[in-house]
């Protein structure tokens, strides 16, 4: 029985060039661009090393996901179009505590598995970097409990793909005074800095895992101050040693009171609340338009959103698309100048 014998009907397609794929697959070399789908032969040349998203059968390398082929030296991998966040060392992430366990917290960071946050890799009240005692172990739930949000850095990634986090810097820790939202992790572009102060007394933490935290700017520990200090330590050493030198010990003593684990929100004025909501909707609009989310784009989007007086209007698809269009035209104009 031949496939050609089968009769099938489907909706007439809208001027799509499905044929162009077939032409491309004639080439001997693995393709750089163009989509491969599961089971598709990527290369029959055994010299290529098999990376993620591929499998190997009888000297042939096949794709195991739908995505585009990437070649780095001899390494051949297929990057899926969509997928779960994969933690990497050094990523700044936002997460939610799911479980309090033996000397560790389990944190949902939107990855395949929950990450662990060891008791030893957080700053505890009492200042100086001290050994964690048994009493600390007993009151772990007073620091962070199930459902709490925190931002942290990925310390290591284990063989099985799960991650371990640390919060040994003043810019990391428990989150309050704000609102949480998620976007696809592929839209967050990795950069040096993932926490930004935005105009209107609002700060944003764009977790690499696609979890975003919008809050009122904290005057005393404005992100930029902490980050500048952090930056200098990174630059002078060349590599970043977690927990070391990111802030002077004296400063840590000042800040590391019980305050940092407080559950109480500060008083937030109505205008700041409005601004936070506006930023929330702008980020939602960016993710709707599948635009990469950066500080600049959030700012541009915020300005574009000001044409809508009513913040609630921003959740309409029309206005979301309007904002995305504004951002794109704005960027084009800047680029051409």
């Amino acid at each position: 029985m031949e496939v050609a014998d089968i009769i099938s009907i489907s909706k007439p397609s809208k001027f799509e060039d499905v044929d162009s794929d077939i032409e491309m697959s004639d080439g001997e070399e693995p393709r750089d661009n163009g989509i491969v789908t599961p089971g598709e032969l990527v290369t029959d040349d055994p010299v290529w090393m098999k990376g993620h998203g591929t499998y190997f059968l009888k000297d042939n390398t096949y794709s195991s996901v739908a995505g585009n082929v990437s070649r780095v030296n001899r390494l051949l991998s297929v990057i899926p179009l969509r997928g779960k966040y994969q933690p990497e060392t050094g990523d700044h992430v936002v997460g939610r505590i799911t479980e309090v366990g033996n000397k560790r917290w389990k944190v949902d960071i939107g990855a395949k598995q929950d990450a662990v946050l060891m008791l030893g890799s957080v700053n505890l009240p009492g200042g100086v970097l001290r050994r964690k005692s048994e009493s600390d172990e007993l009151q772990m739930r007073n620091f962070l409990k199930e459902g709490d949000l925190l931002n942290a850095e990925v310390q290591t990634v284990f063989n099985n793909g799960s991650a371990s986090l640390h919060t040994r810097s003043l810019k990391y820790g428990k989150l309050r005074n704000g609102i949480f939202l998620t976007v696809p992790s592929s839209l967050v572009i990795k950069s040096k800095n993932h926490s930004h102060d935005l105009p209107g007394d609002v700060s944003v933490i764009l977790g690499v895992n696609g979890f975003v935290w919008l809050n009122k700017t904290n005057k005393s520990t404005s992100n930029s101050v902490v980050n500048n200090k952090l930056q200098s330590t990174i630059d002078s050493k060349g590599n970043y040693d977690p927990g070391k030198g990111s802030v002077s010990i004296t400063r840590l003593e000042e800040e590391s009171s019980w305050e940092i684990y407080s559950d109480k929100n500060d008083k937030i004025s109505a205008t700041v609340r409005d601004n936070i909501t506006r930023y929330y909707n702008v980020i939602k609009a960016l993710s709707h338009g599948e635009l990469g989310i950066t500080e600049q784009r959030i700012n541009l989007g915020y300005q574009a959103s000001l044409q809508f007086g009513n913040i609630g209007k921003l959740i309409e698809i029309e206005s979301m698309e309007n904002i995305c269009q504004d951002i794109i035209t704005n960027e084009r104009m800047r680029g051409s100048m």
Partner: peptide
């Protein structure tokens, strides 16, 4: 499953 980016041998 393909949309979820889960690795599979084939359709």
């Amino acid at each position: 499953l393909i949309d979820a980016g889960i690795s599979m041998y084939d359709y």
